[in-house]
Design a protein around this nucleic acid. Structure first.
Lengths: 128, 128
DNA sequence: CCTGAAATTGACTTTTACGTAAATGCCGTC
DNA sequence: GACGGCATTTACGTAAAAGTCAATTTCAGG
């Protein structure tokens, strides 16, 4: 496990721009340490970036991603906070389940569409 | 099966604004017929709206949704076009599979986060 | 110590997906 | 035939999520 990554290493690894990483820092999603003015990204920052991008691919906004990230963090010490957090986690999970249903339905529709295309090809006497 | 729906019926059913439906029409996603200047939505339009909203929940942009919708349409008559469409469908499906992986991973992480919270509650002597 | 590559900040611009407001049209009814 | 209520069009506004550009600054290597 490497100790630090530079900003360009990570932009190459994840195929994003430096501007994007700085934007995420401005938004408080990541907090790389500094040597002078240069950002040094730790493995934990790298993992966070991975989670951020996953959230993005799923269509979550920055604010939603921020919420999700807070859920991954160290659980709070107070009972009320803990219960609140559990509630939030369950809400997010319901959200994800809805997405999964949407996903399955969309895949089914695409399957149908493809089958229609394949059949049409067969009618035209093309061997698939 | 009803013949026509008014714009407000659909806004209520799907909890969206008239502005949104007109926007989708401007974007060429739906083409309701007209009686004078008034839009009349057919069941097929209604089904399209359902698909559009599903796409939105999955984080697709209007352009991506437009592409997906074109895939649902009547398959084209020409062999080259058919093969192209099949290719596009497969690309979209790969996209959806990536989303599914993201989804599963995110759910797992949320499960872990929740478990940590529950354990922490147990440590504090709270009965869940 | 110098230089060039890489990094930084800050300001401005762009795109997407609608929201909102203003002015007007159409229609059933009282 | 005026009125309420829904519908329409046109036009401008806006928030989110970066992209782009310009002007420095840092720093490792020679």
């Amino acid at each position: 496990m490497r100790e630090y990554y530079t900003i360009t290493e990570l932009t190459r690894e994840f195929d994003i721009s430096t501007r994007t990483l700085r934007f995420y820092e401005d938004e408080g999603l990541i907090q790389p340490v500094r040597r002078g003015r240069t950002r040094l990204f730790r493995p934990s920052d790298r993992h966070l970036i991975r989670q951020i991008l996953r959230g993005k691919r799923l269509g979550f906004s920055i604010n939603e991603i921020r919420e999700i990230i807070q859920m991954y963090r160290e659980p709070p010490g107070e009972v009320g906070q803990l219960k609140l957090m559990i509630k939030r986690i369950e809400e997010k999970r319901e959200d994800l389940r809805q997405k999964r249903r949407d996903l399955e339905e969309t895949i089914v529709e695409l399957d149908n569409a493809e089958e229609a295309c394949v059949e049409r090809l067969a009618e035209l006497g093309v061997n698939t």
